[in-house]
Amino acid sequence: MKKKVLTVDDSRTIRNMLLVTLNNAGFETIQAEDGVEGLEVLEGANPDVIVTDINMPRLDGFGFIEGVRRNEKYRAVPILVLTTESDAEKKNRARQAGATGWIVKPFDPAKLIDAIERVTA
């Protein structure tokens, strides 16, 4: 069974990089452009792991993570925060919202894959 990754990022560049990286590593990838869309596709996507950006229009990463954690079915899905924020405050907020871990951009593909494998069985 291929693992399914839901990525949520408003940057087309990053979305494409995630797509290429994840596909090359043999993941199935579903993409959303912001938190609102992320929550919309969540149900049908049924992901094994979620990778999300923080700064996004409409609904930011914090709000999105909280939304996922409120969903009875997906509240235990590992969520990795993909962001350029390196300061502890943002990481903490993400953690309080329910993030599992984080990857600091600029990510290198190997690190992204490792992080995903780290939080998934």
């Binding site: 954690r69 509240r75 235990a76 899905v77 590992p78 969520i79 953690r95 329910g98 993030a99 599992t100 871990g101 780290r118 939080v119 998934t120 069985a121």
Partner: peptide, 9 residues
């Protein structure tokens, strides 16, 4: 656990 981490992992 509630944040999706896993002791086993």
């Amino acid at each position: 656990y509630s944040k999706g981490n896993e002791a086993a992992l």
